[in-house]
Design a protein around this nucleic acid. Structure first.
Length: 828
RNA sequence: GGGGCGGUGGCGGAAUUGGCAGACGCAGCGGACUUAAAAUCCGCCGGCCGUGAGGCCUUGUGGGUUCGACUCCCACCCGCCCUACCA
């Protein structure tokens, strides 16, 4: 049994030891070696919350760590860095609730994150750690702001924007859904604010087409395409009685003759002009109410359409019919032209509106004849399918699809309409009326107006403030710091005032991946050689919740950089993977308030980091949501114990290694092949089960007393190499205890012989009439005739052939022999 | 309403992508060791029938394609996630 050299497996002793060894020997430092292939493996950079990591976060970091270690063992230079998304609302909110300055909490929290990440055995290159709230970083965030500004992609505008009363800041449309802000506060409303925007819409088309060039999960691509929401249609001018015509956007010009009313968004600038004097009071009341209502209130009554008649009219440009103009909040001011033609027969929303206010419904697309709707033209819902045009003057009888083209041509010929493309995506609101963010490098001068800060004057430093909480005025806390606000104009040197809004946190994360390539570079955001060596990111791993936030913004910035010839690529992340969520043992999201948080600290203390890693890899497929099981991790620990004892017992009784174990050799090569393939394809759960099967087999061999063969010893060595990425501590300890020098993580990955990895004798099933009746052993290179001969000789097959004859048979080498019978015809 | 993902034992899951369904692990049951417990080791472990060999059923439901379907096609049911008045 255990010899004096071997203590029982004790992760609490060996893990800190190897962690220190790796640190001291700089085992994971990334170098730009032009003679080696490179691999950039990146995790979404976390915001360092006060709660620290829970085991759910490890679901992201462990697989990327396995991949990085695996790549290094294949001789690649690997950039596997970690940094902190430390600027932004979450960090600041935490600081406010704790009454501590965010600088202090950020430093505390990042130290804790770093400690935890080392604890679980990650192989980050800590020389490259970055912190987006550090001036050496945000200086370049400001530099990028100026780049966008110079290229006309950053602008200031007064507009209706989301406002969160709890965060006391404006939010981008991406950060709000269902009237709830991304931090989870409800009661989000609209406010008219002067704020900064990035013109992401200028890249709308490329943000769609570029998705074809990246290896990303299809759901994420589809969410982005949907979010951008490209839709081709027509802008049609409706003449008015106030002079200038009002354009609408529609994808269905074929339904133009069915327009029985016209609707303006409450915010539409033409509302006052078009409103008849006798309707003015009512319209004004409606507009004020619609604009002031919070999104939650609007949602609550979303089933019922509201609106008022303006008393004004427009004219249908083709039918020349005069139709009434209404104001209604179901028309969005920011999409299309902020006005729609109401075609109740063929648009569900218009239908509901017409129903609500008893407006006429006119069918202009006849549904297919077999539909009952044609008999009585009283629809109970809009007909949005395809059909033949009716009630449409000269266009009657045309299929709707043709009508779209014909009406379009007619309108274009008369100068009453034009083809356009509309997008759901809006420009990106980046201003935040908050303290803890990158100051916007803009100065307002009475003489020169809006002036960018000179590059050599960067960074515009965020001043220290003790009282940095928002005061409810809607202005940034920075506006209360005269030393910050008062400055001189970069152009005329006269007194001027600084912009006091800060950039939202997504500005930092839009370029941080570039900084990792040369985090200490002073002359620019990144050193061009290093950037060219590492970029683009080869593997990017994080949760799916950033699909339309960070992942869209970073792509946009990259395209801007490419146009400015700063980078030679247009997509920053070649391959993206989303890990599944790890839920608490109760199946709920892990959170402090639910009390179901499991920390890596407690798991490492109880089972060791390797057991935690093995369990997280093994518990479910990488992309899948799964609940934590406290018994499951114990199984991982048992597995590692068995491995430990396998080596302890074998090497203590070491002896001459002589014979060859052919069966084991085949299994070894097969195992190497499987483990390699499974790491490459992110199937870590089955990678672990392959290692389990292999070590179970080695235990059997050992118990049977066959541990003297050279094959067995080669297998033990290969097992350590294969275990190294997933369980780095125990692998290094056993590597050392079995007489090897150095670290297992610096060894080359084992190779396999594809002939040996394939069995030459297969056990294949024999099916008779669709049921498996017998299994036979047959050489892999046997042909169908040989397979049939072998099969028919077996009594277990003959028994099913009695009184019948073979009609057909199929032989798939290595897979199956399938025999189909029919009864003999002799009775006839 | 639109888009996406999924449904396999008591549980997490596996199935070389159309070829022996249930690998591997968890839980459970029985046994060995122990004064006892823990740990460890051995055996059993989808359902029904059968003493047994064995037989029949079984991958949400119903149909289809095929020698053969968890896998492909059609229809339906259920669950989760994202998005939402985008004209």
């Amino acid at each position: 049994m255990l010899g004096n050299r071997w203590q029982p497996y004790n992760p609490q002793i060996i893990e800190p030891k190897w962690q220190r060894y790796w640190d001291e020997n700089q085992l994971y430092a990334a170098r730009e070696d032009p003679d080696k292939p490179e691999f950039y493996c990146l995790d979404f950079f976390p915001y360092p919350s006060g709660e620290g990591l829970h085991v759910g976060h490890c679901r992201n970091y462990i697989p990327t760590d396995v991949t990085s270690r695996f790549k290094r063992m294949h001789g690649w230079e690997v950039l596997h860095p970690m940094g902190w998304d430390a600027f932004g609302e979450p960090t600041e909110q935490f600081a406010i609730t704790h009454g501590i300055h965010p600088r202090i909490t950020t430093d505390q929290n990042t130290a804790n994150f770093r400690r935890q990440m080392k604890l679980i055995g990650t192989s980050y290159d800590w020389n490259r750690e970055i912190d987006s709230s550090n001036p050496s970083f945000y200086r370049w965030t400001q530099w990028f702001f100026l780049l966008l500004y110079r290229r006309g992609l950053a602008y200031r505008d007064m507009s209706w924007q989301w406002w969160c009363p709890v965060c006391q800041t404006t939010l981008s449309s991406q950060e709000v859904s269902n009237g709830v802000c991304w931090r989870g506060h409800s009661g989000v409303t609209k406010r008219q604010v002067l704020s900064w925007f990035f013109r992401i819409t200028a890249y709308a088309d490329e943000l769609i087409t570029g998705l074809d060039q990246v290896q990303w999960p299809e759901p994420i691509k589809s969410i982005q395409r949907n979010w951008i929401g490209r839709s081709e249609g027509f802008e049609i001018d409706f003449p008015t009685e106030i002079g200038k015509p009002l354009p609408v956007f529609t994808t269905r010009p074929d339904t133009l003759y069915g327009a029985t009313f016209f609707v303006l968004a409450p915010e539409h600038p033409a509302v006052p002009e078009l409103t008849a004097p006798e309707q003015r009071a009512e319209v004004e009341r409606y507009v004020t109410q619609a604009v002031g209502r919070s999104e939650v209130e609007r949602m609550a009554e979303s089933r019922e359409k509201s609106g008022v008649f303006t008393g004004g009219y427009v004219t249908n440009p083709l039918s020349e019919e005069r139709i009434p103009v209404w104001v209604a909040d179901y028309v969005l001011p920011t999409y299309g032209t902020g006005a729609v033609m109401g075609v109740p027969a063929h648009d569900q929303r218009d239908f509901e509106f017409a129903d609500q206010f008893s407006l006429p419904v006119r069918v202009v697309i006849a549904p297919p004849v077999e539909s009952e709707q044609v008999e009585d033209l009283r629809l109970d819902a809009a007909f949005t399918g395809s059909g033949i045009m009716v009630n449409s003057g000269p266009f009657d009888g045309l299929p709707g699809e043709v009508g779209i083209e014909r009406i379009g041509e007619e309108l274009e010929a008369r100068g009453l309409g034009r083809k356009t493309v509309q997008y759901k995506m809006r420009d990106w609101l980046i201003s935040r009326q908050r303290y803890w963010g990158t100051p916007i490098p803009i100065v307002y001068c009475e003489k020169c107006g809006q002036v960018p800060v000179l590059e050599e004057q960067l960074p515009v430093l965020l001043p220290m403030m003790n009282d940095f909480a928002p005061d409810g005025s809607g202005r940034s806390p920075l506006a209360r710091v005269p030393e910050f606000v008062n400055t001189t104009c970069p152009e005329c040197a006269e007194p001027a005032r600084r912009e006091t809004d800060t950039l939202g946190g997504f500005a930092c994360s839009s370029w941080y991946y570039l900084r990792f390539t040369s985090p200490h570079y002073e002359a620019g955001p990144f050193e061009p050689q290093a950037m060219r060596y590492w970029m683009p990111v080869d593997l990017y791993v994080g949760g799916a919740e950033h699909a339309v936030l960070h992942l869209l913004y970073a792509r946009f910035w990259t395209k801007v950089m490419a146009d400015a010839e700063l980078v030679p690529f247009r997509e920053p992340f070649a391959r993206l993977m989303n890990q599944g969520q790890l839920l608490g043992p109760d199946g709920q999201r892990m959170s402090k308030s639910r009390g179901n948080v499991i920390t890596p600290d407690s798991m490492v203390a109880e089972y060791g980091a390797d057991a935690l890693r093995i369990y997280e890899l093994f518990m479910a497929p990488f992309e899948q949501d799964v609940s934590w099981s406290s018994e499951g991790i114990n199984g991982a620990r048992r597995f590692l114990n068995r491995i430990w004892n396998l080596y302890a017992e074998t090497f203590f009784e070491s002896s001459e290694a002589v014979d060859k174990d052919e069966e084991l050799e085949r299994l070894l090569h097969k195992t190497i092949r499987r483990v390699t393939e499974r790491i490459k394809s992110f199937r870590f759960n089955t990678m672990v089960s392959t290692l389990m099967e292999f070590s179970n087999h080695l235990l059997d061999v050992q118990r049977a007393g066959n541990w003297r063969s050279a094959t067995y010893h080669a297998a033990l060595e290969a097992l350590l190499l294969m275990l190294a990425p997933a369980a780095p501590y125990i692998a290094d300890e056993l590597w050392h205890l079995t007489g090897h020098g150095g670290s297992v993580h610096e060894q080359p990955w084992p190779t396999w012989d594809s002939d040996l990895a394939r069995d030459e004798v297969w056990e294949i099933p024999i099916q008779v009439d669709g049921k498996v009746r017998q299994v036979m052993e047959i050489p892999l290179d046997a042909n169908q005739v040989e397979a049939e001969e072998t099969a028919f000789a077996l009594s277990g097959v003959q028994q099913y052939l009695a009184g019948r004859e073979v009609a057909k048979s199929f032989y798939v080498p290595g897979k199956i022999l399938s025999i189909v019978t029919r009864s003999k015809v002799e009775d006839l």
